[in-house]
Amino acid sequence: MSEQGTNPHPGMNLGYDGGEKAAEVTIFGFWTFLMSDLVTFGLVFAVFGTMTGATAGGPGPEEVTDLRSIAIQTALLLGSSFAFSWASLSMKYHGGRLHMLGFLALAATSALGFLIFELIDLLHLVEIGAVPQRSGYLSALWALVCLHGLHVAGGLLWMGGMTLQILLFGLTDQIKSRVTRMGLYWHFLDIVWVGIFSMVYLAGVA
């Protein structure tokens, strides 16, 4: 559909010309970083895969999975991703920063909701004794879920910082390039979450 003949990098097509070359290089660099991060996640997945049987008599997938909460988390994170793309459209087609920040705030709130539900889940795990110290399986589960959760939390901090910068400096080229990178990061985390809810939770209880 959208013919983006002028967009030399992945991620949202921002349609700005200024500093295009510099933006192209930084965004490609960030994309490379994400690929390295992808390998990190993939290998933690693999380690998790090798440890699915290592419950050592402790709680297993049935006990640790609350599908309702997972479904809510999935919806919240997807919603956040979607809101972010709306924010980037706003940035691309309209200059107004408040309009864009509105969507960004929506994305952030949604992600915050995700984190809160995740935290509740984890607290519940602690309650039932499904702590990472209990077994290899739980260690891997906690490591994988928290690695993703920490990435999301980091993303939220980043969003806070960007909001401040947008308010201070407006939508300069520099800022646009940063928002583009943030978008890559944000959508990437949603992709990782698809892996987590499918392979860790759904496949766990199936």
Partner: peptide, 11 residues
């Protein structure tokens, strides 16, 4: 779903 995300959200 990952392909959808890559294609549509990440372009």
């Amino acid at each position: 779903q990952i392909v959808v995300h890559l294609r549509i959200f990440l372009h």
